[in-house]
Amino acid sequence: MTDERPDEATDPLVSVVVVTYNSERTVGETLSSLADQTYPDDRYEVVVVDGGSTDGTAGLAGDHGAQFHVVEGGTIGACRNRGVDVAAGDFVAFTDSDCAVPSTWLRSHVDRIADADDHIVGVGGPNRPFPSDPPFAKLVGSLQGTVFGSGGSPQSHAIDRVREVRSVACCNVLYDASIFDAYRFDGDINVGEDAEFHFRLSEAGHRFLFDPAIAVSHHLSPTFAAFCEKSRSYGYAMARIQRRHGKVIRWYSALPSLALLGGSVAALDDLGKRRLRNVPLLALSFLLVSGYATRQVYRDRHSGLALLVPLMLAAQYGYYGLGFLEGLLAPDPVPQELP
């Protein structure tokens, strides 16, 4: 630890929670970055909550001196709740087991929230690919920095100023611990648990501060197949969450599914009338959108791989839309009896 401040005794205690599951390959990097904070080492603790790993995750947590708790078979939401339960801090921070945080991470979060208004319950920031990640992962990061790649989601979209937002990503967030006296993550949710939790907070009038300067490194999808699968899982999760609440959580979440259905109807209409009118118009619209995103990605990466952006956008929208439809149509799980 470095850069201890003269008034470090007044610094609030922070509990950092890292949720893991078979994270042996990456969690060591996460915990090493948390051990190298400018925040006083006696004013924060690191808590690892594991969903029942079968690899060497537990040993790595022990090697780094982190508390280790297991929620066997637990969802991400349930593991986050266990972390909150055991946290002793005035603030609770979360990062993921495939992330690395800068040395000023805790200091920046605590300083940012110190003078925040009462309706601010937390601080978050963006996540960026690791410099050592493969070229495709970096391309994913640049695509998510565009409005068409992220849907305007602040944790990915390139926002250049501190602003209030309704939601941030749990791979880079610090909460005022008092918020957990009245709210918890939904323990039944494994993907999108942060979006669902923040939706309930925003409905009650709470907000977050988004600071673009507090960024973490995050291992993004390294392959096209992984990118497609993640898009599908996000779409499925968002549909399930919105079904649960009976409300639209993010206005853009249904657009990919509507585009898939609308495109199919338009193609069938052209086929039935034996003429091409609708499909060329749709193709032109997509080319304009993907061309704009390609230009932004190229300006960021200066790589010919930016030419893959149209294919990536088509896959992202298509798989997200498919997942969303699956989530809307899937039967609700049968409630399990408690012992």
Score class of each variant (00 low, 15 high):
residue 107 R to H: 12
residue 96 D to Y: 10
residue 105 W to I: 00
residue 116 A to L: 06
residue 91 F to N: 09
residue 49 V to T: 05
residue 145 G to F: 03
residue 80 R to L: 12
residue 77 G to M: 00
residue 61 A to E: 05
residue 77 G to C: 08
residue 57 T to A: 04
residue 100 A to I: 02
residue 128 R to G: 06
residue 114 A to L: 14
residue 88 A to Y: 09
residue 95 T to S: 14
residue 134 P to I: 03
residue 127 N to E: 15
residue 43 R to A: 01
residue 98 D to L: 00
residue 142 S to G: 13
residue 41 D to V: 10
residue 62 G to M: 07
residue 93 A to T: 09
residue 141 G to N: 03
residue 108 S to A: 06
residue 93 A to F: 12
residue 55 D to S: 01
residue 140 V to C: 08
residue 125 G to F: 05
residue 132 S to L: 06
residue 47 V to Q: 03
residue 110 V to D: 08
residue 67 Q to C: 01
residue 104 T to Y: 09
residue 121 V to Q: 07
residue 86 V to N: 08
residue 69 H to E: 09
residue 101 V to N: 07
residue 147 V to T: 15
residue 63 D to E: 15
residue 99 C to W: 04
residue 144 Q to L: 13
residue 145 G to K: 02
residue 144 Q to R: 15
residue 132 S to W: 04
residue 65 G to L: 03
residue 148 F to G: 08
residue 54 T to Y: 15
residue 100 A to Y: 10
residue 139 L to I: 00
residue 120 I to L: 05
residue 71 V to K: 02
residue 47 V to E: 06
residue 41 D to E: 12
residue 78 A to V: 02
residue 52 G to C: 03
residue 86 V to F: 08
residue 119 H to Q: 12
residue 135 P to L: 03
residue 130 F to W: 14
residue 132 S to I: 04
residue 41 D to C: 08
residue 93 A to I: 04
residue 56 G to N: 01
residue 52 G to T: 04
residue 63 D to H: 14
residue 85 D to C: 11
residue 77 G to H: 09
residue 73 G to Y: 11
residue 143 L to P: 15
residue 144 Q to A: 08
residue 88 A to N: 10
residue 134 P to Q: 02
residue 129 P to A: 03
residue 120 I to N: 05
residue 89 G to R: 00
residue 83 G to H: 13
residue 122 G to L: 03
residue 45 E to K: 04
residue 121 V to N: 01
residue 140 V to H: 11
residue 107 R to P: 15
residue 121 V to D: 11
residue 90 D to R: 05
residue 115 D to R: 09
residue 83 G to S: 13
residue 115 D to Y: 06
residue 114 A to Y: 14
residue 111 D to Q: 02
residue 72 E to P: 06
residue 149 G to Q: 03
residue 52 G to P: 07
residue 46 V to L: 04
residue 78 A to E: 08
residue 115 D to S: 12
residue 43 R to L: 05
residue 145 G to P: 06
residue 93 A to K: 04
residue 56 G to V: 01
residue 140 V to I: 04
residue 76 I to M: 09
residue 117 D to V: 15
residue 103 S to N: 07
residue 67 Q to M: 00
residue 43 R to P: 01
residue 138 K to G: 15
residue 63 D to F: 09
residue 44 Y to R: 01
residue 82 R to C: 15
residue 79 C to S: 09
residue 120 I to Y: 10
residue 74 G to T: 12
residue 110 V to T: 05
residue 75 T to C: 11
residue 143 L to R: 07
residue 90 D to V: 05
residue 119 H to L: 08
residue 127 N to D: 14
residue 67 Q to W: 06
residue 80 R to N: 13
residue 65 G to A: 02
residue 47 V to D: 01
residue 140 V to S: 07
residue 42 D to S: 03
residue 41 D to R: 10
residue 56 G to E: 05
residue 56 G to H: 06
residue 75 T to M: 11
residue 44 Y to G: 01
residue 139 L to M: 03
residue 61 A to R: 02
